[in-house]
Design a protein around this nucleic acid. Structure first.
Lengths: 225, 225
DNA sequence: GTCTATAACCGGATAGAC
DNA sequence: GTCTATCCGGTTATAGAC
């Protein structure tokens, strides 16, 4: 049993090692120029052995993605426990994710090249991504439910999914953001979150209610996840 | 001179031939399984020769993209000359593009894998794509300017760019659309165009004007093209 | 059952002759 | 403009060590 545990640990350590050297090589040379042969060698492995731990080169990147999700959870908890205002809760959780993802900004461009293909398992809308997507949506469920901002009953159910889609949009913007340290993205998160919170608050007004429900109906009708 | 013209024509014909067999092979086997060797052979060429005509395999797809833009222009002219209502003009020109792009739906997934990378010349936001992007925005300029729907002065200038971005969003949706013949996308175009036209019309109302200007300012501040 | 090494395959891309 | 030969890097098959 002890040996099993040791072996398990060893595989885990090797995996970690590959991840570490990959990140270094990707950041030093870019994704394409960092060959699997070089990664394996830097990790002290034969090329083929690396494939025992990662199905494909792209799967290495996917691990960064999951890692960044896990890494941002403590920040999320902090935001959700201290902020009550919808705008601040929304902006807070989204900002938190972008902050931990900073080291992966360059690499993310490549990840998204893969993820944008709807047929690929790594697509955020794919079946395989379902569990991670649900965990993400759950965060927005908490953003909405425990918020001090009153949310109209009709909006309550769908809002978390809409906010998740909003975050997907932010990530897309972030990918394209060429400003230093992606500062534009962070300002954009603040302003657009404020706008969304305001729209949510106003959605009950008689003149606007019709629109609100129309958009909600469209969202339900055309969403593909 | 005659021989030069002949050679020009020959190159042109060869290029066309490659394009034709590629489309067939892509549709029959998918992009990845259609190897350059197979494409070259089907076109009656050696593998290396194909690379004289196309820089990379992906560049073959880019030609479909440009072709679909050119192919949809007649339809655009028709829409712009017959429709006056903003909703119908907007929905019309967008629908037209999606209709001519139908044969390329599968292939487009691969094209977008490349185009989504902001550093890639094929990205719709890149410098290299500038001319094609401008041509596209010009279409929306005409959609707005000759429309019977009154457009507030403050909105007039930026609206074409906003509508172009709207079309980018539709294309993204289209890529993910798994419904038969992408029917969902076409319905979505109608409904969202109607919504946009309504919002434009309402944007002058005192209560809404503030929001309208706020969104406009955000667009100007955060747009990256 | 867990892990690693060697050798080979495959397909995109290039060099250089004609 | 086209060919042949070759490179290069992701990936796989296989065998076997621990």
């Amino acid at each position: 049993m002890a040996s099993e545990r040791e072996k398990f640990q060893k595989a885990d350590l090797t995996r970690q090692k590959i991840l570490d050297v990959s990140l270094t090589l990707f950041q030093k040379q870019g994704y394409e120029r960092a060959t699997m042969r070089a990664i394996a060698q830097a990790a002290g492995l034969a090329p083929g052995a690396a494939y025992y731990h990662f199905e494909t080169k792209e799967h290495i990147i996917f691990d960064f993605y999951q890692r960044s999700f896990n890494d941002h959870l403590p920040g999320v908890e902090k935001v959700l426990s201290t902020e009550k205002d919808l705008k601040r809760r929304l902006a807070g959780v989204v900002r938190m994710h972008m902050e931990v993802a900073k080291p992966y900004h360059e690499i993310s461009k490549v990840l998204f090249q893969t993820a944008i293909n709807p047929d690929h398992p790594l697509s955020p809308f794919s079946k395989e991504s379902g569990p991670l997507r649900e965990k993400n949506i759950d965060i927005f469920r908490r953003v909405v439910e425990e918020s001090s901002t009153p949310v109209p009953e009709k909006l309550r159910g769908k809002l978390p999914e809409i906010l998740w889609l909003f975050k997907m949009g932010i990530i897309l913007y972030w990918i394209y953001d060429k400003s230093p340290d992606q500062r534009k993205t962070f300002r954009f998160i603040e302003e657009s979150s404020a706008l969304i919170a305001k729209l949510v608050a106003l959605s009950r007004l008689p003149g606007i209610q019709g629109f609100s429900e129309r958009i909600l109906a469209m969202f339900h009708k055309y969403k593909t996840f």
